[in-house]
């Protein structure tokens, strides 16, 4: 059973709502456990998240008024909600962005915006490779990338090559896309099969039910 990325996106949104709709610490902990378990089964936890959670916990525990039990419960709830959002978001970020963009277009997002999304995802690795390359070229020409003056240097000497190669890329892309009739009609067809299955509909109805019940 594989759910559509859009269904998963809706799930994440509903999940985050639920985290805030319930205030019982047990329910929040239970909700938190779902993405957490899914996450640690497959991926490693970043140390920054742990440190940051402890930080949030500490800040809340210090500044909230009340007895010790209330302080602890309140801070823990905040941290669990925070982590719930983080882990569910991180799980979602593993989805194929291409499929996500296509699903959005399928449910009515105008294709110009949808294809812009696809293009952005396509270009991100190129831009990051380009930035790495520019940085290497800077080092090879003796640009000082250490110390206080480095930040100024990085900004100053990265901007120009970035802009110019970006402009050239934009030219080539325009030629390539217009040359293949992008934007000729208001609608366009899609070659890929509709990617919504029965499971998606069943799951979405279930989510709607849960949300309705908890409201």
């Amino acid at each position: 059973m594989k759910l559509n990325p859009l269904t998963k996106f809706v799930t994440v949104i509903v999940y985050c709502l639920l985290l805030f709709l319930f205030s019982s610490i047990y329910v929040v902990a239970g909700l938190f456990a779902v993405p957490f378990v899914l996450y640690i089964r497959n991926f490693k936890i970043n140390r920054f998240i742990v440190v940051f959670s402890l930080f949030i916990f500490g800040i809340n525990a210090v500044f909230i008024q009340g007895d010790l039990y209330y302080k602890m419960e309140y801070s823990l709830r905040i941290v669990l909600r925070f982590l719930g959002i983080v882990f569910s978001g991180m799980l979602f970020s593993r989805e194929d962005p291409n499929e996500f963009a296509h699903s959005l277009m399928r449910v009515g997002l105008p294709y110009r915006y949808g294809m812009t999304m696809v293009l952005t995802f396509r270009l991100i690795p190129l831009f990051s490779a380009e930035s790495m390359m520019i940085k290497k070229a800077q080092m090879a020409r003796g640009v000082d990338l250490e110390g206080i003056s480095s930040l100024v240097n990085v900004v100053r000497y990265t901007f120009l090559p970035w802009i110019y190669s970006g402009l050239e890329r934009a030219d080539a892309l325009t030629l390539s896309m217009e040359g293949r009739c992008f934007g000729i009609y208001r609608k366009r067809t899609f070659y890929k099969e509709s990617i919504f299955s029965h499971y998606d509909y069943v799951w979405l109805i279930f989510l709607a039910g849960v949300l309705w019940w908890s409201l």
Partner: peptide, 25 residues
């Protein structure tokens, strides 16, 4: 064009080849 990298605008080969035909509906 000269640089194959900068004229590809989608993420999968199938999408890329279908691109023009999809635009033409």
């Amino acid at each position: 064009q000269q640089d194959p990298e900068s004229q590809i605008c989608t993420m999968s080969v199938e999408d890329e080849i279908a691109f023009g035909l999809e635009n033409l509906c």
